[in-house]
């Protein structure tokens, strides 16, 4: 059995006054994983916490390949090989997409972007003019998702956290994003939050994780998706609580 690349120990995450994640303990093995859960379950919060976003107040521990990274800033986590593709990336005034790509690629701001950037732009059906635009300014929903995926392609992280890469995009955009994720899945470990599961047309996950009430993660194969589709998350929630009770947790 492979060693987990990521582990949380007694993880509590507060957003404002609310405890979104409550004493969560889980291990993430290498591979591709889909993270499901009802709205408000804490999926985006979990991804943001793994990345170290400061708006999330954390207690407990996050271990990256056995190393405690709980107190590391996002840039340090980036350097360790963790990358978060946002669900709704913000506009950053005055900073162009190419400025961010150069940082990701660790090349001098005065140097030209390498050829692979232009190839990925083509693959994602993104015009080259996006490179000179203020990042996310005036980008459509689909263009924002593509920009995020482009960054993952270039970052080649050890673990990419993709927050709903398949939501709010049209069929054509989905196709190019899906193909890009397929490529990423061959090179990186992936934890993908998805609601509509369209991403499953492009990747074969090693496991499906279901986050229940920010407290438990139920781990299973893709067959669990059909059960959720038929019986809803409530079924899983009850099942999980019964299991936990029987174990005395």
């Amino acid at each position: 059995m492979s060693r987990p690349i990521l582990e949380t120990k007694n993880l509590w995450v507060k957003v404002g006054e609310n405890d979104i994640i409550q004493n969560l303990n889980f291990k993430l093995n290498p591979g591709v994983h889909i993270l499901l859960g009802p709205n408000g379950a804490g999926k985006s919060t979990l991804l943001g916490s793994i990345m170290g976003l400061e708006r999330f107040k954390i207690t407990g521990e996050i271990l990256w390949k056995g190393e405690n990274i709980t107190n590391l800033s996002p840039d340090k986590r980036f350097q360790k090989g963790i990358f978060l593709a946002y669900q709704l990336p913000p506009v950053v005034r005055g900073v162009r997409l190419k400025d961010v790509l150069k940082k990701i690629l660790n090349i001098n701001q005065k140097k030209n972007l390498p050829e692979e950037v232009y190839q990925y732009l083509k693959d994602l059906d993104l015009d080259e003019s996006f490179l000179d635009r203020e990042i996310n300014q005036g980008f459509s929903g689909g263009e924002r998702k593509k920009s995020e995926i482009l960054q993952v392609l270039l970052a080649k992280p050890e673990l990419a956290l993709l927050d709903e890469p398949d939501s709010g995009v049209d069929i054509d955009a989905l196709k190019s994003i899906g193909k890009a994720i397929q490529k990423i899945s061959k090179e990186c470990n992936l934890l993908i939050v998805s609601h509509n599961l369209k991403v499953l047309d492009y990747v074969k996950p090693n496991s499906v994780l279901v986050l229940i009430d920010g407290k438990y993660i139920y781990t299973d194969g893709t067959e669990i998706i059909h059960i959720i589709e038929e019986r809803g998350y409530d079924f899983l929630r009850r099942k999980m609580y019964v299991e936990k009770l029987s174990l005395g947790n």
């Binding site: 800033s73 840039d75 980036f78 913000p90 506009v91 961010v100 940082k103 990701i104």
Partner: peptide, 12 residues
């Protein structure tokens, strides 16, 4: 905005 850039490798 700052946070987004830090997730891309910029320090604060």
């Amino acid at each position: 905005e700052i946070e987004y850039l830090t997730t891309r490798g910029f320090n604060r």
